[in-house]
Amino acid sequence: MRLWSLHPSYLDSIGLIALWREGLLARKVLLGQTKGYIHHPQLIRFRETENPIQTIDAYLKAVHDEAVRRGYNFDLSKISSCECQPPPRLPLPDKQLEYEFHHLLNKLKKRSPLQYSILQHITPIFPHPLFQVVPNNICAWEKRS
């Protein structure tokens, strides 16, 4: 399970679709509707919030927004309405953002050379809207995955 901390606009179509599906799986895990993935390190940052479901839904809403921008038809009814007060932004160490960006570039080099060439020289790197970049080392939850 990979729940990118990068802005969803960086993902190619394969990555964006996978993120939506894995985000929905993460939501089911947080709701206790699965037997697997219950201890997955990518879920720690959501579990540690006051309202994990509201937080994962806000995460997924941003993924949905990017899909709509591209003309895709992701089913918004699979998440709760995010009309209430948005959850607080989660801290994201700058080193984690850099790590994920380079990880994505390595995937795109083979899978989507055009997207790779577009992103190769991008600066600054923007996080997913749910996250606030903070100076620090890699996240404790990411070291475990």
Rank of each mutant, 00 (worst) to 15 (best):
M1N: 09
L6P: 00
H7T: 00
P8S: 03
P8M: 01
P8E: 02
P8G: 03
S9M: 11
Y10Q: 03
D12I: 01
D12M: 03
D12Y: 02
S13A: 14
I14F: 15
G15H: 03
L16P: 02
L19S: 08
L19D: 02
R21S: 14
R21V: 13
R21K: 15
E22W: 14
E22Y: 15
L24H: 06
L24N: 09
A26F: 10
K28G: 11
K28S: 14
K28F: 10
V29P: 04
L30K: 04
G32E: 07
G32F: 07
T34I: 09
T34C: 10
G36K: 14
G36D: 15
Y37V: 10
Y37H: 15
H39E: 15
H40L: 12
H40V: 07
L43A: 05
R47T: 05
R47E: 07
E48A: 12
N51Y: 11
Q54P: 06
T55M: 05
D57G: 00
D57M: 02
Y59V: 02
Y59S: 03
L60P: 01
L60S: 02
L60M: 07
K61M: 05
K61C: 01
A62T: 03
A62W: 01
H64R: 06
E66M: 03
A67Q: 08
A67R: 03
A67E: 05
R69F: 08
R70I: 00
R70C: 01
Y72S: 09
Y72C: 03
F74T: 05
F74Y: 11
D75G: 05
S77H: 08
S77Q: 10
I79P: 00
I79E: 00
S80M: 10
S81Q: 12
E83R: 10
E83D: 11
C84T: 15
P86N: 08
P87T: 03
P88M: 08
P88V: 10
P88S: 11
R89W: 02
L90Q: 02
P91H: 05
D94C: 08
Q96H: 09
E98Y: 06
E98S: 11
Y99E: 09
Y99P: 04
Y99I: 08
E100F: 01
E100R: 01
E100Y: 02
E100P: 03
F101G: 02
H102V: 08
H103L: 10
H103Q: 12
H103R: 10
L104G: 01
L105K: 01
L105N: 00
K107S: 12
K107R: 13
L108D: 04
L108Y: 01
K109G: 04
K110S: 14
S112Q: 06
S112R: 04
P113H: 03
P113N: 05
L114H: 12
L114K: 14
Q115I: 01
Q115K: 01
S117L: 11
S117F: 13
S117I: 10
L119E: 04
L119F: 07
Q120R: 15
H121E: 14
I122F: 10
I122K: 12
T123D: 13
T123C: 11
T123Q: 15
P124A: 11
I125C: 04
F126H: 14
F126Y: 15
P127Q: 01
P129C: 08
V133H: 04
P135T: 12
P135N: 12
N136V: 12
I138Y: 02
I138F: 04
I138D: 04
A140P: 04
A140R: 10
W141V: 07
E142P: 00
K143E: 08
K143P: 00
R144S: 13
S145L: 15
S145V: 15
S145M: 14
